[in-house]
């Protein structure tokens, strides 16, 4: 689980960092990436969070099923 979350975060930062460096700095440098380009990054962040949440839910369901399968084979054997 932690590994998956970590890969998600790395993937996201790698993709966004490219866009970060490409931007021209005309005014004093501020941490306003999230407010640029019509605030599209906010939308991306929201969707990434929703997607991460849903995937985490599916992964826990997957693990629960694996546990149940193990329980059943133990009972049989």
């Amino acid at each position: 689980m932690n590994k998956i979350v970590l890969t998600c975060i790395i993937c996201f930062t790698l993709l966004t960092s490219n866009i970060l460096f490409a931007q021209e700095m005309t005014s004093p440098e501020m941490a306003d990436v999230m407010r640029s380009e019509g605030k599209i990054y906010v939308v991306v962040a929201i969707l990434v969070i929703i997607f991460a949440g849903l995937i985490a839910y599916v992964v826990t369901l997957d693990r629960k099923l694996t546990r149940l399968e193990k329980k059943i084979t133990d009972k049989k054997g």
Partner: peptide
């Protein structure tokens, strides 16, 4: 699967 869909969401918007 997760990597592909994450890429889709980020790249699809940007």
């Amino acid at each position: 699967t997760i990597a592909l869909l994450l890429y889709t969401i980020v790249a699809g918007f940007l």
